[in-house]
Write a protein that binds this DNA or RNA. Structure first.
Length: 259
DNA sequence: ATGACAATCAGAGATTGA
């Protein structure tokens, strides 16, 4: 089974590019971030015609997450628990039902810039809540994964120019430590389990010719619970997508599970 | 330190992103 994550930077602007990639990559499940659309405006029929079940958690103009799945989705939850006043659409989870169940969580972690400031505080607070949900997932002892745009550069080798990011919310020790704390619960960075070394990126800024200079960062991740990690056979980033017409600034990352 | 680029909403230019 192939599960992908893709920050599409607007479903309205990205539907053609998304369809082209879907038909090539043929993922069974796709986790989308930054749909930048309310639920009613999401073009669900286009994806249903391709055989996907569609669940969205949208918001006007900004944020918004969605799950496309060829398998039925159950136990759908919208919004990261822990703060009822949080109105930003950054989390949707569901259980897919194969012979055995897998809990799939799609997230769009706050950027956090500028720093210091309320946006950075929100990022750190959101990561504290993410830690609590991650702990619950581990405690359940069921196969689970969290994937999406984490807005975290885990290590220096995950940036082409790490010096440019030292004071950025994506690379600040404080936010990276919170990411590491989640890994230390027992979650596996699937990409690093399958790939070594520098030069692997999932985001290139639209500005300053970042793609042409390969000045990228790796900020889109798949974190797998231990019994989900046992099923992992491959993880790759479809970086060539960034060079196409009207691309997102992110590219898809996917895993294969032996189920 | 700033802007470079793109998407959104709105119908110009501000806001957001990373």
């Amino acid at each position: 089974m192939k599960i992908a994550s893709f920050n599409i930077n607007g479903i309205k602007a990205r539907t053609p590019a998304l369809l082209e990639w879907l038909k090539e990559a043929k993922p069974d499940v796709v986790l989308l971030q930054e749909i930048k659309s309310v639920d009613e405006a999401f073009p669900r029929e286009i994806f249903e015609e391709l055989g996907y079940n569609v669940e969205t958690h949208g918001q006007k103009s900004f944020n918004g997450v969605a799950i496309l799945s060829k398998y039925p989705l159950r136990e759908i939850e919208r919004g990261l628990p822990g703060d009822k006043s949080d109105e930003q659409a950054r989390w949707i989870e569901a259980t897919i039902c194969l012979p055995h169940e897998i809990k799939i969580c799609c997230l769009y972690l706050p950027n956090g810039n500028p720093l210091p400031g309320p946006k950075y505080d929100y990022k750190l607070e959101w990561m504290d809540r993410l830690y609590h949900r991650a702990k619950e997932l581990i405690s359940s002892e069921k196969p689970s994964l969290m994937a999406g745009d984490f807005n975290i550069i885990p290590q220096a080798e995950d940036a082409a120019s790490p010096k440019n990011w030292v004071n950025d919310a994506l690379f600040k020790l404080e936010s990276r430590s919170k990411f590491r704390k989640i890994l230390n619960l027992g979650f596996l960075d699937a990409f690093r389990a399958c790939n070594d070394g520098p030069g692997h990126y999932s985001f290139w800024d639209y500005q300053a010719g970042a793609w042409n200079k390969n000045d990228g960062i790796r900020i889109d991740h798949f974190l797998l619970s231990p019994n989900c990690s046992d099923l992992l056979t491959d993880c790759k980033i479809d970086s060539d997508i960034r060079g196409r017409e009207k691309p997102s600034d992110h590219v898809p990352i996917w895993i294969k599970l032996n189920v």
